[in-house]
Design a protein around this nucleic acid. Structure first.
Lengths: 370, 370
DNA sequence: CACTTATAGTTTCGCGGAGAAATTATAACT
DNA sequence: AGTTATAATTTCTCCGCGAAACTATAAGTG
């Protein structure tokens, strides 16, 4: 976006955005650069208005006060849009990915041109509300996205090789970025969430589907070749729609859980009702929730075994299930752990559907900052 | 080892070692550097004797002949030592990790001082055979190794927090490097094996134990926090010594397979006999081998799901089992694959115990080159 | 055979990023 | 007022890198 800035300057700006206001000396220590270099790197950022000097803060002890450098979070706006089969979720955020406005509208159809129109519409409405220039729009979908350009394959939308970014770019006059939905959520955790401080972490989401994101060495690892949804957990569990017995999808997706409980009770039950029933002691619902939490625990153990990553974030619209059955989660984690000091406890981050849209906004923020 | 060489020079030398003799122009293209820079980077390497100019080779077409740069593979020697509970395996190699001599001796006991003595002995015998200066000794063990210095925890040797490198360094006057055994094997694949050309791959070994190494972005990812050996495959499978039902250890380790077949046949059967029986159609042995191959296939699918890595190398002393039952391996891989175009076929690399020692030698080569 | 074209590698030179040392700006303690 | 400590800047210099020009070598061309 600002190709004139040297790489090192960008790294400094990103550090301030991600870790908050800091003095030049602090930044120099963290990056391993010298103080003179930091002065030099920061100057163009101040000129460009990316950073500003905040009032100098006194630290206990003597010496000159340090001047904190901070980003200007509210000069520009970003828009995030997440597509699902039923709805389009959109948020307007500032540079810190704080949500300032949001909109949910029903997906008109899965017909590509209609979706393009709907998204263009919601983007222009959000832009109208922005009051500031919009720096970028991020759009995320479930499924494989190729080079930020094409929806290579989305089983949910039933799209294949759709050049969605280009199609939408004809209708939106703001820089546009396309990505996978879980990648967006992972990037959001990496810059503005739990992953901020760590070089390695994994993100596991449960809800309508099962999502999985992985960061190793501060970089998102592309893990979409074969999705986690069909990771086998217990070959004697229920059947998923794809015909796999006891895979993650069969155990933890909202629809699978609601179906199983509906069958057991002999009447239609929603996912939210399943959770409520489980909490109030209904045996069928409690068993389904426990099995789901157990499956999540097993998946966590497998993630740690195969990636070495100990820090795992659990999230997604359905994540409350693990809070209802923490013991089952724990059992699933340690069952096969061979006495090894068990890994760190997961961080549970509750989430609504708009978080997906926020993840999309972060795609735009990361791509267009500074 | 040669701290005077700039990083970029080292990278060039490594490229020549790993990918073979190349001209300066080829190297410039690959590294993205300019021709003048390459001339400059190569000069100190020629002065130091790390690289030499081979006779210029004519390529079809006009223009000046290019001069190939190559490493001098036989000026120095490296020694690799792998410790197991029963034996010590040692190899003498050149810079290309080609084995020139080897020795296997029974492990005297698992008593640390005795092992130190034995290793010091075998190292001095190998060094005597070397005929050239020995540049480094690599030692690998199963279990967690901390900072190349301490055997933090090795269930096999029953060692805990043993500062093995320092203890051994008092008896060996050559630079000494300590690492985990699977890490060594992974490094060997990365520089001298299948992984040479790829930025991401995984290594899965079967034999006395189950080993797993992972390379992402050309870097080895530490995956030892919770080992793969207890990855659950089928909760209704056999029991492993740690009490897990149907984990990898229970299915694929040589001892587990030999035990199961011994029980079924009512008489003691070795692993090699199990393979022979399976090949000749013995139903019990064939079933055990098929189940093991199936377990390996499931593990491969899980690796791809959770790491995104499609290239997987199968190896280890027991790897022949997957060649006996390729269909079961395939079933395990695709069973839960959800129709996704199945990943690449695994590369099967047969291996004997000395390969472990060669992996140890590569630890020394990587650490002390150039 | 001289001349052109093509490719490999080197030399020269200048730019730009980085730190060491010295300098300036503040603040607190004595 | 003088001393000490910390933050930030200026000055100077070093060093890695590539552009441009140049040398070396080989093959085609009339």
């Amino acid at each position: 976006m600002r190709p004139d800035l040297p790489d090192a300057s960008k790294a400094v700006a990103v550090d301030v955005l991600v870790h908050g206001a800091q003095s030049r000396v602090q930044l120099a220590k963290k990056t391993g650069l010298s103080a003179p270099t930091l002065t030099r790197l920061v100057r163009p950022l101040l000129d460009a208005g990316v950073l500003v000097e905040r009032d100098s803060v006194r630290t206990p002890g003597r010496g000159r006060s340090s001047v904190l450098l901070d980003v200007v979070a509210d000069d520009y706006r970003y828009i995030g849009v997440k597509l699902t089969t039923e709805s389009i979720y959109a948020v307007l955020t500032n540079l810190r990915a704080e949500v300032l406005a949001s909109e949910t509208l029903p997906e008109p159809s899965l017909n590509v041109p209609e979706v393009v129109s709907s998204v263009a519409g919601v983007v222009s409405r959000m832009a109208a509300k922005a009051g500031r220039p919009v720096r970028g729009v991020g759009v995320t979908v479930g499924g494989r996205v190729d080079k930020g350009e094409t929806v290579a394959d989305s089983p949910f939308l039933d799209w294949h090789e759709v050049p969605f970014r280009t199609l939408l770019a004809e209708r939106v006059d703001v820089p546009l970025f396309l990505a996978n939905d879980v990648v967006g959520l992972t990037l959001a955790q990496q810059w503005f969430g739990y992953g901020r401080t760590y070089r390695d972490f994994a993100l596991l989401t449960v809800g309508a589907g099962v999502g999985y994101g992985l960061v190793i060495n501060h970089e998102v690892v592309p893990t979409l070749v074969s999705p986690i949804g069909h990771l086998p957990v217990d070959p004697h569990g229920p059947l998923c729609p794809a015909g796999h017995r006891g895979c993650m999808t069969a155990f933890v997706t909202s629809r699978a859980m609601a179906n199983t409980v509906s069958l057991a009770r002999g009447r239609s039950t929603t996912y939210d009702e399943v959770l409520k029933l489980a909490e109030s002691g209904d045996p069928a619902a409690a068993r389904v929730v426990a099995e789901a939490a157990h499956a999540v625990g097993r998946a966590m153990a497998a993630i740690t075994s195969l990636t070495g990553v100990e820090r795992i974030i659990l999230s997604g619209e359905g994540v409350r299930l693990v809070e209802i059955a923490p013991d089952s989660l724990h059992d699933g984690r340690v069952e096969y752990a061979d006495g090894q000091a068990s890994a760190l406890d997961p961080v549970i981050r509750p989430m609504n559907f708009l978080e997906w849209a926020r993840g999309a906004a972060v795609v735009a923020i990361q791509a267009s900052f500074p």
